[in-house]
């Protein structure tokens, strides 16, 4: 019974916080701040010399992020190799 009351209170608390946070969200399709988007649209083709602006963001402006993605894939391959290695050696 105590746990149920605790769950109810926490659900009400989290729901209330989410609801109050949602009131401050800008309407759908109308972004609040656009200087970043405007910068990329205006300058990405000239600075990175690539037609595909998305690729120039992924590989040039945020190249470090893509390096992390590559490292994640590398770690996944290593863990699969560790999981499916041959048995019977020890």
């Amino acid at each position: 019974m105590k746990a149920r009351i605790f769950f109810l209170i926490s659900i009400l608390l989290v729901g209330g916080l989410l609801w109050t946070g949602l009131q401050a969200v800008h309407p759908f399709g109308i972004p609040g701040e656009t200087p970043m988007d405007d910068y990329f649209i205006a300058n990405a083709q000239g600075e990175a010399a690539a037609n595909n602006v998305v690729t120039s963001i992924v590989f040039d402006y945020r190249g470090f992020d893509t390096l992390g993605e590559g490292a994640v894939l590398f770690t996944a391959v290593i863990s699969v190799a560790a999981l499916f290695r041959k048995r019977g050696h020890n």
Partner: peptide, 30 residues
Amino acid sequence: TSGTIALMNLSVGLEVVGGLSMILLYMFSG
């Protein structure tokens, strides 16, 4: 065009081909 972006696309493509094929072969042999 596009400098290192094309080079990085090639290298990431090489890495993804090798990595996913290795996951495939390891799971198959497992």
